[in-house]
């Protein structure tokens, strides 16, 4: 499978490096998430209201033609970010900050218009499809125009799915076929922004390569792709930039090259720890756990586990700052 970088992408990386977070709207900029916070209101005993902040001050952007990987451990807020963009958060969620799509605020109304069409989710598994509907019909339902059937057949052909495959129910699909159906369903409505949620875990290497090649191809055609994953390896194969999440916030955004060069170019101690823990590197963990939203440390969220911490790190949460063509949230990063 061809997943090699094209020159187009090294070019777009260069333009990212020269841009500060505060610059004016860039024509390539498809999605910009700024200072996003998501909290859940919970009622404890005696009607006491608890505000559980699960995403705090999160910043990330995706350009047209670009793949941005979002990596981080489970519970770091990756899926909630996707749900916030798609407008499918539970009703007791409170959202602050801004999400802009094509230069305009992504309001609830616009989310409704775009969801499943321009802004599309490739879900983690076929469990997200309707189990009682043949997969071909499901794709036609997404398209919703008169020539839906014809378009469905075209998109199936594009992903090497036979006519017969359209007549299968989700549970009848094999691993590789299931991934193709999920991609076909997601792109059939003319997607411009694709959010792929954990597209690779537990798949055979060939299927992983094929899935990644599909994402790369979509980006080459101009789509912006947000790939949510905990698999740094997969991200390294196709992404242009990687955004690293920890305890509900972005701790680093780095061009992909920084993950390829021995890890020294990485800016945040958590990112370095992730990189070092890979089986091909040290395969050694760092002590401790990601803090839960109920007891977050007062200063830097990574402070309890950080070997570089100083007294200052406990005082206040570090701001995201530009550094060496990426961004980092650490007061001691160099």
């Amino acid at each position: 499978m061809n997943t090699k970088q094209t020159s187009k992408f090294s070019h777009s990386n260069a333009s990212i490096m020269n841009r500060s977070t505060e610059s004016l709207a860039n024509p390539e900029e498809l999605l910009v998430v700024k200072n996003l916070s998501v909290s859940f209101i919970q009622y404890a005993k005696g009607l006491k209201q608890l505000n559980l902040e699960v995403i705090c001050d999160l910043n990330v952007s995706v350009n047209s033609g670009e793949i941005v990987a979002i990596v981080g451990s489970s519970g770091s807020g990756k899926s909630l970010l996707a749900h916030a963009i798609l407008g499918i958060l539970p009703t007791n969620a409170k959202v602050t900050g801004t999400i802009r799509y094509q230069g305009q605020a992504l309001t609830t109304e616009r989310q409704k218009v775009f969801r499943g069409r321009e802004i599309s989710l490739i879900p983690q598994s076929v469990n997200y499809l309707d189990p009682l509907m043949k997969v071909g019909e499901q794709v036609q339902n997404t398209i919703r125009t008169k020539d839906a059937k014809q378009l469905q057949q075209q998109v199936f052909e594009r992903y090497h799915l036979s006519k017969e495959a359209g007549l299968l129910y989700p549970f009848q699909l094999s691993g590789g076929m299931a991934r193709r159906v999920l991609v076909a369903t997601a792109v059939s409505g003319g997607a411009k922004l694709i959010i792929a949620d954990e597209p690779t875990p537990g798949l055979h290497p060939e299927v992983v390569a094929e899935t990644l090649a599909h994402l790369k191809e979509l980006a080459n055609q101009g789509c912006g792709v947000m790939m949510i994953t905990h698999d740094i390896e997969a991200a390294m194969k196709i992404a242009d930039r990687i955004a690293v999440f920890y305890a509900g916030t972005t701790v680093e955004v780095a061009p992909i090259e920084d993950f390829k060069e021995g890890g020294e170019a990485l800016r945040h101690p958590y990112t370095r720890a992730l990189w070092m823990a890979l089986p091909e590197n040290d395969f050694k963990p760092i002590p401790g756990f990601q803090p839960t939203p109920t007891d977050l440390p007062p200063g830097c969220l990574f402070e309890p586990r950080c070997h570089l911490r100083t007294a200052e790190c406990q005082c206040k949460k570090p701001e995201m700052q530009d550094l060496r063509g990426g961004q980092v949230r650490c007061i001691h990063a160099t």
């Binding site: 489970s74 905990h230 050694k284």
Partner: peptide, 17 residues
């Protein structure tokens, strides 16, 4: 059986160790 497939690199390394 794919014991750590769903986990991030640090958690994987912790359990395998």
């Amino acid at each position: 059986d794919e014991m750590t497939t769903m986990l991030d690199a640090i958690t994987q390394a912790q359990i395998w160790e």
